[in-house]
Design a binder for these strands. Sequence first.
DNA 1: CGTCACTATATCGTTAAATGATATATCTAG
DNA 2: CTAGATATATCATTTAACGATATAGTGACG
Lengths: 105, 105
Amino acid sequence: MSKNEQLTDSMFYIMAALTRPRHGYGVMSQIEETSNGAVVIGPASMYTIIKKLLKNEWIYLYDDSDSRRKTYLLTEKGREVLDGDLQVRKLMIKLAEAGLKEAEE
Amino acid sequence: MSKNEQLTDSMFYIMAALTRPRHGYGVMSQIEETSNGAVVIGPASMYTIIKKLLKNEWIYLYDDSDSRRKTYLLTEKGREVLDGDLQVRKLMIKLAEAGLKEAEE
DNA sequence: CGTCACTATATCGTTAAATGATATATCTAG
DNA sequence: CTAGATATATCATTTAACGATATAGTGACG
């Protein structure tokens, strides 16, 4: 049981997208698509959070060869953090689902 | 497709707990237990958020008869918001799981 | 070839959210 | 009678997220 560093929603979404190499703009688009427009992370949040994730060494600069695009990817540490957070999120979703179901009587 | 008011993690956790009548302190304990200690919401956050949820009419004061305990419960509106948010969260979890699985090669 | 929309990254200043510290009071067990 | 748990509450601060804005390259269309 590692001390679980709890991620914010936005961090979680961005890290989930960065399980594959992607650049910032691509992450924004993907999150918007995957959530059917429910989750929108603008550039300000995006690049603020990328900076933080880099500092924490949860992601790293994967490719810089294209002058326009910077692609990032999760580090091993980042994958662990994401996975730990995922487990907590799943637990909490179960709690919410159970509660909502019970109330349907 | 309603305009989805995206909840913060803490709001989601607290609202998930309030699918049944519970008082603030009980919500804190329950979240800590359910998450196996990974999510801890202290009193400052708790009562700040309860105030906000009341203002939004997503919860209401369910019982005040005990002088020490104030129990709250989701309103119908609150259940709808929670349910909408839940769907988004499930989508994002799928995304994260898919990504983590793919990387395991 | 000009300009319009889109792609792409970035920062500044502000708003909004969460938290640490602290206070108060009751209840329970030794 | 006092120590720890229960229970609610606020203030002041820190942290996180975001709107606005800037810059620049690319693609398509007339």
